[in-house]
Amino acid sequence: MNSPLLSALMAALPQFVSGTWLTVQLVALSLLLGLVLATLVAVLRLSHLTPVSWAARGYIHVFRSTPLLVQIFLIYYGLGQFDAVRQSVLWPLLREPYWCAIIAFTLNTGAYTAEIMRGGIEAVPHGQVEAARACGMNGALLFRRIILPQAFRQALPAYGNEIILMLQGSALASIITLMELTGVAKAIAARTFQPIEVFCLAGAVYLGMSFVITRGVHLAERRLNPARK
């Protein structure tokens, strides 16, 4: 690194900090909302009502197998094209890039997490469900007390992967004008024409964040594992 670049990076430090903060907000909020959505969808996906199950399946399939770039682009620029959307009560929300990003990321992570949750739910031994039924537990109680806690625990390692993927996916928010970490890095790279140095710096920040996430998930795995208590 030569010194003009170094001084350019130093001058951009506040931008890097605010970009990192925006990344953290987007990821945390989308993951939270996505988890709620995913739990709901996973339950619907395993429902015995065929239309409900197929709707959940369709949602999961569409959002898992198209690029996030396309999803976020269509939700932000696509929906804005329709007069009906611009006249609707939702427009104050949809005209903001921030909320469009949250909506797109939530729908995306919701689909992936729903599949992870389904795996977790299916891994709960059937004998336990039968035992709970024999004790007189009904649907909601059964889910809340027996199935979901174990499903969460089972799904945790795969969910750790999903958190990291969401962290990386959040980089796409810059195409709808949100200057998160990658957006800041891209802007500085385009201004200074020194992309590799700038992206290495941003990469180090991402690496730090995913290291923290990996450690956190590891700790949670240990605490939730009854055999290690």
């Binding site: 611009r86 005209r95 890039p97 200057m179």
Partner: peptide, 18 residues
């Protein structure tokens, strides 16, 4: 200030009033 990756995307948002 809203920063767009392409001028075309900026044009789209001028049309929608964002």
């Amino acid at each position: 200030i809203r920063r767009y990756d392409t001028l075309q995307n900026l044009s789209l948002d001028l049309a929608t009033g964002r």
